[in-house]
């Protein structure tokens, strides 16, 4: 079968990029006195459904849905974007296993934007029939459920599923054949590994625990990172300073949220060349990441305004924009 060339889709995305938020748009939002004023301005820019009484969450959810709907219009085989959705699948699996272990009612704990229907996940967990799931996910689900039943340790269950989710992302990135998707997967796994190493160092976890939690990737040596994690925070920083993630050291020294921001900004900086690409899946994936980044930034801004944070405090959390 001929490989799709995405010329039409990439050109359409170019036109859509005109409505992406720039730094000056964020400045306009920053100048708003309250979150209600921000919502009004967002409405004027075409966000949400145009109703005056829209909540921030519904507005952001609508924007995410619009993004995915537009991609569905442009791409016939949406499986290429599964790499972005595996985190939701494993979140849903985690929710299904925990709900099965300690039933809770009422709360909507499932994320509808995954590659697998949450109902199928619940059904698989309830019937203990994981053959309904993809093999890698089935193994992880089996192990996580039996671990939770035997030990009652929710954290261990989380580690098993988070590890499997990151592996799924890494594998999908490599299998995609797209340089951008491969980079996204590598970046996601490496940043998660760094986060895990730092968290484990702060909570004094054992080497075996850290080794189990870390997911192998090409740009980090997880055995060295695990060793550094059980030594000290400085050892982690020393190791990272010798890798592609040198810039993370300063952010980590500042705070966890500064590191999150550094990760998001690094991703946005690395996808910039896609603005000049004309015939691959790259511009579409970059636009999706740019929209997700935009939505995340608006969420931070709205939350900051709602909670009365100072402009400086909000500003230091804002992400860089793609356009």
């Amino acid at each position: 079968m001929a490989k799709p060339d995405y010329i039409y889709a990439a050109a359409r995305i170019r036109a859509k990029e005109l409505s992406c938020f720039s730094t000056s748009t964020l400045e306009q939002l920053m100048a708003c006195k309250s979150d209600e004023e921000c919502l009004r301005l967002l409405g004027e820019k075409g966000w949400g459904d145009g109703s005056a009484r829209q909540t921030p969450e519904s507005l952001l959810e609508q924007e995410r849905n619009k993004t995915w709907d537009q991609l569905r219009e442009l791409v016939e085989d949406m499986h290429i974007f599964d790499v972005f959705l595996y985190a939701n699948d494993y979140h849903n699996l985690k929710a299904a296993i925990k709900e099965n272990y300690a039933p809770s009612h009422g709360a909507d704990i499932y994320n509808p934007n995954g590659t697998i229907d949450p109902t199928l996940l619940r059904q698989a967990v309830e019937s203990h029939d994981f053959s309904l799931l993809p093999p890698a996910m089935a193994d992880a689900a089996e192990e996580a459920l039996s671990t939770l039943r035997e030990t009652g340790d929710g954290q261990l269950c989380d580690i098993i599923l988070d590890h499997a989710a990151l592996r799924a992302v890494a594998d999908a990135g490599k299998a995609s054949g797209s340089e951008l998707l491969a980079f996204y997967a590598e970046h996601t796994v490496a940043c998660a590994d760094i986060k895990i190493a730092v968290r484990c160092q702060r909570t004094g976890k054992s080497l075996a625990f850290v080794q189990r939690a870390l997911v192998p990737c090409d740009t980090l040596d997880v055995s060295q990172l695990a060793q550094a994690s059980v030594e000290s925070f400085d050892a982690i920083c020393d190791y990272l300073a010798r890798t592609d993630y040198e810039g993370a050291v300063e952010a980590l020294s500042h705070s966890a949220s500064a590191f999150e921001r550094w990760c998001d900004n690094r991703l946005i900086q690395k996808i910039q060349p896609q603005k000049y690409e004309t015939s691959s899946i790259g511009p579409l994936a970059a636009w999706l990441l740019a929209r997700e980044n935009e939505i995340k930034t608006v969420r931070i801004l709205l939350s900051g305004k709602r909670n009365g944070l100072s402009d400086d405090a909000i500003r230091e959390r804002l992400r860089e924009m793609y356009v």
Binding site: D5, R12, A15
Partner: peptide, 8 residues
């Protein structure tokens, strides 16, 4: 193809 994408 590209022109149609822009004109859409």
């Amino acid at each position: 193809e590209a022109a149609a994408g822009v004109c859409t």
